[in-house]
Design a protein around this nucleic acid. Structure first.
Lengths: 147, 147
DNA sequence: CAAAAGAGGACTAAAATAGTCGTATATTTG
DNA sequence: CAAATATACGACTATTTTAGTCCTCTTTTG
């Protein structure tokens, strides 16, 4: 399914929070509590974001995380790729190399799906973390039927 | 990850084959053999496509499947939704109803992700089965380094 | 009626994801 | 310096999803 993992979901919640409170240090504990999610799992995701350079971490008492860049320069695609790894592939035979697209298994959807994949990445890149954070305020809070 | 399941992959291989040999009846066995994939699993996927009205099935000896519509009117999004179910949701709290977005778990990325989801579906809808089938012929067969 | 093909349910196996635990390291504060 | 708080990171477990198989039934054609 075209679906984001919990790790990505947590990462998005985290960067959204950081974008709202720029210049503040938010701890994994705070963000986890605010969103009712696992603290340790979130911490790992934040470490990935730090390793990818989107987040700066500060250890020790009163430590925490901040965005390492402007929220306008980080896209949802960046976050997804930082957390899931860069070789996002719609199907197996798209990956960087040595996948099962061998002589006997010539998958005929390889090229068209490569095109689709590019478009999807572009779509994910079309939304910045700043937009992710602002949408919350901009979109009118419609009371829905269900839910 | 943003990734298609094997079921979708098989469905795409099948409709691609049917688009190429329009008006022919292709059996699940044939398509499975051609692509070196599980016949029974493919058969189930084809049944889903038939139930969704994209494919017409014919039982009995010399039976098989054909596209029920022109390849130009069926999109990749149609196939994905027929196989994965219509409630494609990037995250849990997008689904049609009663998901975990309760009073205590107010997920703040709900609205922006709904927007992203629409864009992704639109992206998948941007490629028809006809294009999926033609790309194979149009794209020059580049000999790649690896693979 | 026999063979070939689809329909469909129940079930098993494998892989991916989610989540936990323990320990180490860094930083601040009293 | 000691205690408290926070990140870093590896190993591990549990859960869920996905992939795939098996068996039985129905339909169609020769």
């Amino acid at each position: 399914m075209v679906r984001l993992s919990k790790r990505v979901e947590y990462a998005l919640l985290a960067v959204q929070a950081m974008a709202e409170q720029a210049h503040a240090l938010l701890s994994a504990r705070d963000i986890a509590a605010r969103n009712h999610i696992s603290q340790t799992l979130l911490a790992k995701v934040l470490q990935q974001l730090a390793a990818a350079g989107y987040v700066r971490s500060n250890r020790g008492v009163n430590g925490g995380y901040t965005l390492a860049q402007s929220a306008t320069t980080i896209s949802v695609a960046d976050i997804v790729q930082a957390v899931e790894g860069p070789d996002m592939a719609l199907v197996d035979c798209q990956g960087s190399a040595d996948h099962e697209c061998t002589a006997e298994h010539v998958c005929t959807i390889r090229e068209p799906l490569a095109v689709l994949q590019e478009r999807i990445v572009a779509t994910l890149a079309s939304m910045s973390v700043a937009e992710l954070a602002n949408a919350k305020h901009l979109v009118p809070l419609v009371i829905e039927q269900q839910h």
